[in-house]
Design a protein around this nucleic acid. Structure first.
Lengths: 187, 187
DNA sequence: TAATGCATGTAATCGGTTACATGATTCA
DNA sequence: TGAATCATGTAACCGATTACATGCATTA
């Protein structure tokens, strides 16, 4: 699995950024559907990267807000990123609390399952809107028309739409079957 | 995020099992698309669960193969599982090495991107076959027609199919755009 | 005969999350 | 006035992966 250092290099490949800004990219920016890291891992990673000479750091004074440190890739950092990227990526064995819970749906009150289903659909819809507005607005000029960006954003959209549709169509069936079982058990 | 102890309780909810068998469930069994844990976390988890009285443990002697320890849920374990499941599941912020790499596709040789795309499609196809045969074969009699199981397996299928279709349809477009860019850069 | 499957476990290491610590500005 | 945004960092803790250790039976 790619470590936080590599993730930071990936963000910096698009241009200079501070630790805070990198975090925002993971949280709600271009990297948000397939990355996550907190300050507690980003800041130390940036420190180590600087020690290793893979990034440079310059302080930027701002008024009306705290100073920030802008990090930028060095040539070595650029090479290190490409090297990390050249390994065939590991399969994403992803853990989903939601699917785990729904798998055991019979152990829960039907109302709770209903809540989980609703929350899921709402989340998928929010993500769809988020990605759509993200694609539409050219927030980052460097991202304009980058094939990789478009491909991955498009994938995110396709995934969230498929997920929303599945939950909408099959969620009701799940609830109906659970209610029926509950009725049978009561007999 | 649900910890390995809870994941183990979830597997044991379907019946007695050994640590080795629990691992198999995660690796290639019913839980395989949304869970993962290795021996190094399963065995200690089982030990702690037994200390806490959430599972019982009985040794089973077998001939022609090593003895095994079968764990089973106690009433307390059953309650603990339901309690853990009653919390609204956290959103799955999943990290994908593949999407991260593809996002930065321009930094890689086109051939490498091609390899990544092919490996991805192959993987999705394997998963589709796996889930299909899994659904078809009633390996585990207790799983027969469980609404939660069907819902989650169906979701897995829908996801892998959507992913395969997207990669097939958009993968070629991605490669074409990368080649075009490379050509332009060469000018 | 070499590799794979069955089966259990420990120890060291590593990396990441969480909580803590600080502080100005802006918006509701 | 209280909450959110901007901004950086450390320290403790926890949990998970990895490697190590063992050993028989079956299959290729």
């Amino acid at each position: 699995m790619l470590d936080v250092k590599t993730l930071c290099l990936g963000v910096l490949a698009r241009g200079e950024a501070s630790g805070y800004e990198i975090r925002k990219e993971f949280e709600s920016g271009a990297f948000s559907h397939f990355c996550m890291a907190g300050y507690g891992s980003i800041y130390p990673a940036l420190g180590r990267l600087a020690e290793e000479g893979l990034v440079t750091c310059r302080a930027l004074e701002q008024d009306k807000r705290p100073d920030k440190k802008l990090y930028a890739l060095t040539q070595d950092g650029c090479k290190a990123l490409t090297r990390a990227l050249m390994a065939l990526p590991e399969e994403d064995r992803f853990r989903s609390d939601r699917l785990f819970t729904l798998f055991l749906a019979e152990r829960l009150p039907v109302e709770q399952v209903e809540r989980i289903l609703e929350a899921a659909i709402k989340h998928f819809e929010q993500q769809i809107t988020h990605v759509e507005t993200f694609i539409a607005s050219e927030t980052c000029p460097c991202a304009k028309g980058e094939p990789g960006h478009d491909f991955v954003h498009g994938f995110g959209l396709a995934y969230y739409r498929a997920a929303r549709d599945y939950f909408r169509q099959e969620g009701d069936a799940l609830l109906a079957r659970l209610r029926q079982r509950q009725g049978e058990a009561a007999d």
